[in-house]
């Protein structure tokens, strides 16, 4: 069975249950899936659980293999993870940090790793930052470097936690079109996004997560409806169709309970 299947995912922080048996639909190769939902809904936790960075209950199957039982090194080849932010204090240069993403897990020759890391930075349009220390980069630049770290191992599954949060408009488009391209090559791409306009434009599928459950899922036009947005975010929303059939979500205010 091709694709990513996450079932019955549950995570507790102490006494607090963050995810209580959450199920995701089967996410197929070639698709970009956006996880959306209010703060503290459990989106990041779900992403970390899928990446096996977070102890959890339930099963995560990638192409039928249980990721929890895949050895770490192999998993690093299968799964790329982009965190919300990279630590700001490191004096590693951007290129070194991407090389580390290649050489920390497996024994790879220096020449090969250096060239591969440089190629990824170039592809993302940040080749000119290669020799800058991470501590000298802006938040958005660090985010692009972090994306480079996530994709340099050429993973089958790409998990991204708010990848656009610090990016300017041009970089948002660059990152998202890169994600589209990566998905087009047969990868599974899952990103947490807060910006529903971006989600509507770039996602094949949106999963609305609300208090630890999958509240709704489907194509953007199925999920981004005034009713669902009111239920999940508690906002008064209008959904408009604009030119090129695009969906715009306009928020008028907080939802007044009926």
């Amino acid at each position: 069975m091709q694709g990513l299947l996450a079932q019955g995912i549950s995570v507790r922080y102490g006494a607090r249950s963050v995810l209580a048996g959450l199920d995701l639909p089967l996410l197929r190769p070639g698709e970009v899936t956006v996880l959306a939902g209010p703060n503290a809904a459990g989106k990041s936790t779900l992403l970390r659980a899928i990446a096996q960075l977070q102890p959890h209950g339930g099963k995560v199957l990638l192409d039928g293999r249980d990721l929890a039982h895949v050895p770490m090194r192999d998993r690093a080849r299968l799964v790329g993870f982009m965190p919300q932010s990279l630590p700001a204090g490191s004096s590693l240069v951007a290129l070194e940090s991407v090389i580390a993403a290649l050489r920390a897990g497996e024994t790879l020759g220096a020449r090969q790793a250096d060239a591969a890391a440089m190629a990824v930075l170039d592809k993302l349009g940040i080749g000119s930052l290669a020799l800058e220390p991470l501590s000298a980069l802006s938040g958005g630049q660090r985010q692009m470097v972090s994306l480079a770290q996530a994709i340099v191992r050429d993973p089958r599954l790409l998990l991204l936690d708010e990848p656009t949060s610090a990016l300017d408009l041009a970089r948002q488009v660059r990152l998202l079109s890169e994600l589209r391209r990566l998905a087009g090559e047969g990868r599974i791409v899952v990103a947490v996004l807060h910006d529903l306009a971006l989600a509507a434009q770039w996602a094949d599928r949106i999963v609305l997560i609300h208090s630890g459950h999958t509240h709704a899922e489907g194509a953007p036009e199925q999920v981004l409806t005034p009713r669902l947005l009111a239920e999940v975010y508690g906002v008064e929303a209008r959904v408009e169709r604009c030119s090129r059939g695009r969906i715009m979500v306009l928020i008028d205010g907080e939802h007044a309970p009926a």
């Binding site: 960075l53 790329g80 993870f81 965190p83 630590p87 070194e96 770290q149």
Partner: peptide, 20 residues
């Protein structure tokens, strides 16, 4: 050395690079 270098990018990053 490379594992330790990766850890400078944060625990999650190092783990996702395949470092125990």
């Amino acid at each position: 050395a490379w594992k330790l270098t990766a850890l400078r990018l944060g625990e999650d990053q190092a783990k996702s690079f395949g470092v125990d």
